[in-house]
Structure formats: C-alpha cells, structure tokens
Amino acid sequence: MRDDDKKIPQNAATATPNRSADGTSTGKHRLHTQSWHTVARERATQWATELPAWLRTRSWPSFSDQFSGRRLRLAVATSVIGALGFAAVAENVATTDAVTSVSPAAAAQAQVAERAQAQQAASRSQRVQAEAAAKAKKDAAAKAAAAKAAADKKAAAQKAAAAAAAAAKSPAHVAPVGSLTQVQMDNAQAIVQTGLNLGVPQRGLVIAVATAMQESTLLNRASEVLPESYQYTHQGTGSDHDSVGLFQQRPSSGWGSVANLMKPEYAATAFYRVLLQVPGWQGMALTYAAQAVQVSAYPEAYAKHEGGAAWIVSTLLKAGVKAQ
C-alpha cells in the first residue's frame, strides 16, 4: 500500500496555521507582539528545518513510489524556497515602510537639529576668523610700535653723536680777549669758523676779522636806511647808505639779500669768496687785501686792527675751533 495518502503531520512544512472566525491567525498573541513579516520568516524557517527529517522517516517500496516521493520532495522544496523568498520580500517591504514612514514631526526635528549644527559650525568658524584677525592686528601694531621705537632710538643716537662730534670739533663759546664782549668774540668765532670750513688759510682769517673790526666793530648791525634789516637778529645799527651786517655789505651792490647778509656765516662766506679771487692777496699788506674786497673810501683804515685780529684768531684756534 502507498504512503502518499498518509497525512503529513500538523507541524510539517505543508501545514497551514489555523484561522479564527475573523480571519486572523490562531497565534494572536504573536501577531500582537511581532510584525507579520517576522512570523512569515519564522514559519518558513521551521518548514525548511522539519520537512527533510520527516521525509527521511518514510519508506518507498517501489520505483514508482520513490519517483512519486521525489516529486513530493521537489514540490515541498519549491514551496520552502518560495516561502523563504516571500519572507525576504516581506522583510524588505517592511524595512522600506519603516524608512519611508518617518513621521513629519521627527523629520522636522531632524532638520532643526541639522540647522543648529550648521549654525554652530558657522559660528565657530567666524569666531576663529575673528580671533585670528584680532591677533594679526595686534601683532602688526606691536611690530609697528617696535619699529618706531627702534627708529626713534636710532635718531636720538645719531643726534647725540652729531652733537658730540660738533662739540669735539669746536667749542660753543670762547672767552673774549682784550676789551671784546662775549657777543663780539662769538661773531669773530663765526667768521673764523666759516673760513676754516672753506679751507681759507690763517692769513685770510686775520684779514677777515680785521675787516669786520673796522666795518662794524664785530657787531651784526642793521641799517637805518633799510627797515627790513630790523626784522633779523642784530646788535646795533648803522647809517652808511644801505650797508648791513658784520662787513657792512650793501644789497644794492650785489652782495646778497638783506635777510642773507644779516647772517654772520653768509656775510663771511661772501667776503672770503671775493678775497680768494684777488690775485696775490696772501702777499699783500692786510689793509690793501681788505680794500681789494671792500672798496672802501678809507683804504688805510684796516691796518690798525691787524694786531688785534691776529690775537683773536690765534686764541680761537688754540681754544679748539676747527672746520666742521
């Protein structure tokens, strides 16, 4: 007798779960706690596990019976594979449903969180940039201040060195000799200093000092004829035409402007330049050399000052007056 008509046990792979009157599975508690795709996967796995063991317990007496059994096994295996595929599809659909079924409130909350993170990141970036800019500005200011301090220090050192060098070359004031006042001695010193700067030999210095002693008594005089001359530093006045300064040089004769001739250094320079152009001036008597420059109405008047001028020049040179 064939075994094909025998019923497969209730727990075999071909058995189907009982249904209640409302069409739900008898495992109602499980459906309440698990999703339907999970139950389907579990049933398929149970069929795939129990069916081969059940088939091995059956006996197949004839070739036809064995052939029928193979068909049965093939059919059961096909059912199992289909059930497993159905469970996989069901799980995939459930996963997709779970992904796509995110509530609008949760999505909005996620967007708010993302925006908050982006704002925080932007705020951090701005803060870092601001701190970097502030640091760069502070460093630049410190560098500029250091450079200015270094430049000021260097300028002060240069000024001090120049003052020290000037002081080492020539004294500020040399005490007067004879009946001269300090103002007269300072004017004589300015004449000698200017000559040394131009490279004039000592004989020329004596001629220049003697000429100024005769013309202005070594005082930088303004002119009563030129009211402009009173605007500049002066020590007394004169009335000989438009003559001004230590050498009583006349602007109208082309010696220079009133403003320049009232400067002892400029007036002495103008005198020396003309003296150096006089042929043989060093071999001339002092009075004639001075007259060649000044073209005075009293050419012999300079001779009486030669001794005093030589004393003044010698004193200044011994005191340390040098070319600057």
Rank of each mutant, 00 (worst) to 15 (best):
T33N: 11
T287G: 04
A167S: 13
A157T: 14
L198A: 09
G238V: 10
V244W: 04
Q34G: 03
H29K: 13
A53R: 02
R115Q: 14
A40G: 09
T269C: 01
E91M: 11
A303M: 03
D4C: 06
T78Q: 14
A141L: 11
A88T: 13
T24P: 00
P251F: 08
A106C: 10
N260I: 11
M284E: 13
D240Q: 07
A175K: 15
S101G: 15
M1L: 09
K7A: 15
A13N: 09
A162Q: 14
R56Y: 09
P299D: 10
S179R: 14
V295S: 10
E114S: 10
G82A: 15
F63L: 15
Y302V: 08
T181N: 08
G320H: 08
S103V: 10
R2P: 12
T211Y: 08
E306G: 08
A297R: 02
N220S: 07
G199S: 03
L180I: 03
Q235D: 11
A212F: 03
A140Q: 10
S239C: 11
T194D: 00
Y272V: 01
A172F: 02
A151I: 09
V200Q: 03
N18Q: 15
A118S: 12
T211D: 05
D242F: 10
G245D: 07
A151E: 10
R2K: 10
G256W: 01
D4Y: 07
Q248G: 03
T181C: 06
R41T: 13
L276M: 13
P176E: 02
N197H: 06
N187I: 00
A309L: 01
K304R: 15
A13M: 09
S253R: 15
S223F: 04
V102R: 13
L51D: 03
M213I: 07
A167K: 12
L180T: 00
A108N: 10
P61Y: 06
T78L: 07
S314E: 10
A190V: 02
T45C: 07
V225H: 09
E50A: 10
M262C: 09
S243A: 14
Q189A: 04
L84T: 01
W311S: 13
A130W: 11
Y288A: 08
D4R: 10
T38C: 02
